[in-house]
Amino acid sequence: MSTETDTTDFEFDESAVRRKRRLGKAFLGLCVAATMVGIVALVALLVDVIVEAWGWLTWEFLTYPPSQVVEHYNPANYGDLPTGPGGMYPMIVGSIYLIVMTAVFTLVLGVGAAIYLEEYAPDNTLTRFIEANITNLAGVPSIVYGLLGLAVFVRALQTGQSLIAGALTLTLLILPIVIVSSQESLRAVPDSMRQASYGAGATKWQTIRNVVLPEAIPGIMTGIILALSRAIGETAPILMVGAATTMFAPPQLTDPTGPFGAMPMQIFEWAKLPEDEFQHVAAAGIVVLLTILLLMNAVAIYIRNRYDPRS
């Protein structure tokens, strides 16, 4: 604003303003630095892994079973191998199969529980107690779920060290996260939508089915996929229920009670081996795992944008 009028009774105390502004700038710098630390660390890690995997990540790596001989992984040797190159094909299939089963269980149990808690359960002490404890369960270390899976599924329910035991254990692990995020999506559906539906003579079920769920589905799906992309990288729980460290044939798709392996297990196994070259193989495995993970996240973002009825 211009100050054509008498300026004497308006004090331009610039020093005070400047001091505050400096403080603001310092705070901004702190925040930028905090952001950068995360990004730089992530980029450094990615670059390191990709450089390490460069030249080792081939189509054969994706389509052949692993080998105990490190030379089999080196593309330079592919021509003169008696058996065929080494890869991680069985683990990729195992991981995908594991995650698909986990997704099915999680969808049914997680969304079901969220709908009950959000739409049906009375607002009383018991409900609040249950909700608080679901939130607490989200913070339990994954190894504990592994032990639980070992005791409940492998031993008590006699599933053996099987794919289904792994999938159920991973389901338990991400269930609290999925319930909480699904509840939030349901809660975000405006109450006016429910009222409009009831006012039009809909029953509770019709309201949930036709109005609440369609509004909440993008949020619910995003939550589930992000939780699944956490589950696909988990090693500790499936280690506890007895996932194989190495498999030479993919798990039987028709037999979920058979043995299984998964990418993180194989990567861990490779990383443990003494030969230097195996570090390259492990890095190649990591790149594959990360790619699948990023793809899942991309799908989550796509669903959120595509199916949001308000966009």
């Binding site: 006016s192 939508m193 409009a196 006012g199 109005v211 509004e215 009825p309």
Partner: peptide, 11 residues
Amino acid sequence: GMVFQKPNPFP
């Protein structure tokens, strides 16, 4: 039937 204060069409 009912009409509400704020228009609340479904998406």
